[in-house]
Computed example of a mutant assay.
Amino acid sequence: MNKQRLFLFVPLIVFAGMAIFFWRGLSLDPNAMPSALLNKPVPAFELPVLPAPENPPGLMIANQELLKGRVSLLNVWATWCVTCKQEHEFLNQLKAQGVPIYGINYKDNDEDAKTWLAELHNPYVFSVIDADGRLGLNLGVFGAPETYVIDKAGVVRYKHIGDVNQDVWEKTIQPIFNSLK
């Protein structure tokens, strides 16, 4: 009879275990997804640059030319990404402040991307075309937008998932960015 009474507590024990598991899961930050590339160089690539008035058609760029020599941001964006449009104005503000931002136009239509930058202004020094998503895959991109802080040696020092806005910039990214200068 004692064994039967013990079995009555099994559902209670299972429920308590699951409650602890779910409580822990709800307390995690969904934007805190560590990057496998943290403190590693940006993956090697050679991709075409999205044509713009300052960039001739057919221009190819490699990561060594693009990212070394100064602290910069690497921003993954696309015209199909609603959140990218929300952050775009702030990226233009950062450009006006002298922050170098390089773009990765991720799995997008080139004509749509050119129109987007013409209409909303271009915050990027260059924006490479990652049509097949291979660079994004090598970076560990979950989706757009994502922004990486890259040091002077071309090493990823921080990854932010989601839009970059005034609050994210001031509290998180800018202190890291400034410490690397």
Rank of each mutant, 00 (worst) to 15 (best):
L73I: 07
L73R: 01
L73H: 06
L74F: 03
N75D: 13
N75Y: 06
V76M: 14
V76C: 11
A78E: 08
A78I: 03
A78K: 05
A78T: 07
T79S: 15
T79G: 11
T79W: 03
T79L: 05
W80C: 02
W80E: 07
C81M: 03
C81F: 05
V82G: 08
C84W: 05
Q86E: 14
E87C: 05
E87L: 04
E87D: 06
H88Q: 02
H88F: 02
E89R: 04
E89Q: 10
F90E: 00
F90W: 00
F90M: 00
Q93Y: 01
L94T: 05
K95P: 07
A96M: 07
Q97C: 12
Q97G: 12
Q97A: 14
V99Y: 09
P100D: 04
P100S: 09
P100C: 03
P100T: 09
I101F: 06
I101Y: 04
G103E: 05
Y106C: 11
Y106R: 10
K107L: 14
N109C: 03
D110R: 13
E111H: 07
E111Y: 03
E111R: 11
E111N: 09
D112P: 05
D112E: 14
D112V: 01
A113H: 09
K114S: 13
T115L: 13
T115G: 02
W116Q: 11
W116R: 13
L117S: 08
L117E: 02
A118W: 00
A118M: 12
A118E: 13
E119Q: 15
L120E: 15
H121E: 15
H121Q: 15
N122T: 06
N122E: 02
N122H: 02
P123H: 08
P123C: 04
Y124A: 01
Y124F: 14
Y124L: 02
V125T: 10
V125C: 02
V125N: 00
F126M: 13
F126T: 13
V128Y: 00
V128M: 06
V128S: 02
I129M: 13
I129C: 04
I129K: 15
A131C: 01
A131K: 12
A131F: 07
D132A: 12
G133W: 01
R134G: 09
R134E: 14
L135S: 13
L135V: 12
L135Y: 09
L135K: 11
G136V: 08
L137Q: 15
L137D: 12
L137M: 14
N138Y: 07
N138Q: 15
N138V: 00
L139M: 15
L139D: 10
L139A: 07
G140D: 08
V141C: 06
V141Q: 09
V141Y: 04
F142Y: 15
G143R: 04
A144W: 01
P145V: 11
P145I: 07
E146C: 09
T147P: 13
T147Y: 10
T147N: 12
Y148H: 11
Y148C: 05
Y148D: 02
Y148G: 06
V149F: 04
I150C: 01
I150H: 00
K152M: 01
K152E: 05
A153P: 03
G154H: 04
G154Q: 06
G154N: 00
V155F: 01
V155N: 03
V155D: 03
V156A: 05
V156D: 06
V156C: 05
V156G: 03
V156H: 04
V156R: 04
V156Y: 08
R157T: 08
Y158C: 09
Y158A: 14
